[in-house]
Simulated scan of single mutants.
Amino acid sequence: MAKLLREIKEEQAVDSGVHDWNNVIHFFCKKRLMQDAEKALKKMRSLGHAPNAQTFHSMVTGYAAIGGKYIEVTELWGEMKSIALATSMKFDQELLDSVLYTFVRGGFFSRANEVVDMMEKGKMFIDKYKYRTLYLKYHKTLYKGKTPKIQTESQVKKREAALTLKKWLGLN
């Protein structure tokens, strides 16, 4: 709502189509009809409307509600980053918090570190206690003990990302 008011104050052209499509997507996500929400998002893009922070928030919340859809959230995160780099779009704390929660729960630690960096650059509050509890609940025994002698490059990167997040959480 605050973004809409800012757009109106700055006398920018408000694209009502984006808001209409956001309502449709939000409805499908609230009803946990994610395939229909994905179709609506595709149709929105094909009609030339660019998704905004509210669109992504609805989609991430919908995926989190049905659980286990970490790959889909990762794809959305990639699109969010590219849009943030291409335009001056800023994401709010609530959206980034829900993305971070999904990544920590799913074990996508390199993506979680990216979200943490974005939130820290934006000087947003991050509830480390919540993420420490979540990490301990789902990944308590992960990467404990000695490092295996033979690891692929991707395994090394995953381990480093997990240890970086663990250190950030204060779990060393």
Rank of each mutant, 00 (worst) to 15 (best):
M1R: 07
M1Q: 08
A2S: 13
K3P: 04
L5M: 13
R6H: 07
E7K: 14
K9F: 11
E11R: 15
E11Q: 15
V14D: 08
V14C: 09
S16G: 11
G17W: 10
D20F: 12
D20H: 13
W21L: 02
W21F: 14
W21I: 02
N22S: 12
N22M: 15
V24K: 06
V24P: 03
F28T: 02
F28D: 01
K30N: 10
K31R: 12
R32N: 14
L33R: 08
L33V: 08
L33Q: 11
M34V: 11
M34R: 02
Q35S: 11
A40W: 04
A40K: 00
K42F: 13
M44K: 01
M44N: 01
R45T: 09
L47E: 14
H49L: 04
H49E: 09
H49T: 08
P51V: 04
P51H: 05
P51C: 08
N52T: 06
Q54E: 12
Q54L: 12
T55P: 08
H57S: 14
T61N: 13
G62H: 06
Y63P: 05
Y63W: 08
G68M: 01
K69L: 13
I71R: 15
V73G: 02
V73K: 00
E75D: 12
I83T: 15
A84G: 11
A84M: 14
A86D: 14
A86W: 10
T87V: 12
S88I: 11
S88K: 13
M89H: 08
K90N: 09
D92V: 13
E94A: 11
L95W: 04
L95M: 06
S98L: 08
V99G: 01
Y101F: 11
T102M: 07
T102R: 01
F103H: 08
V104S: 01
R105C: 09
G107C: 05
G107Q: 05
G107T: 05
R111S: 14
A112S: 11
E114W: 03
D117T: 12
E120G: 07
K121C: 09
G122Q: 15
K123T: 12
F125C: 05
F125I: 08
I126W: 01
I126N: 01
K128T: 10
K130N: 09
K130G: 09
K130M: 09
Y135S: 03
K140S: 00
L142K: 06
L142Q: 07
G145T: 00
G145Q: 02
K146L: 00
K146M: 01
T147M: 13
T147Q: 10
P148H: 07
K149P: 07
T152Y: 05
T152S: 14
T152M: 06
E153I: 15
Q155N: 08
Q155T: 06
V156F: 07
V156R: 14
K157R: 15
K157P: 07
E160W: 06
E160H: 13
A161H: 05
A161L: 04
A161R: 05
L163S: 00
L163K: 03
T164S: 10
L165A: 00
K166P: 02
L169W: 02
L169Y: 02
L169V: 03
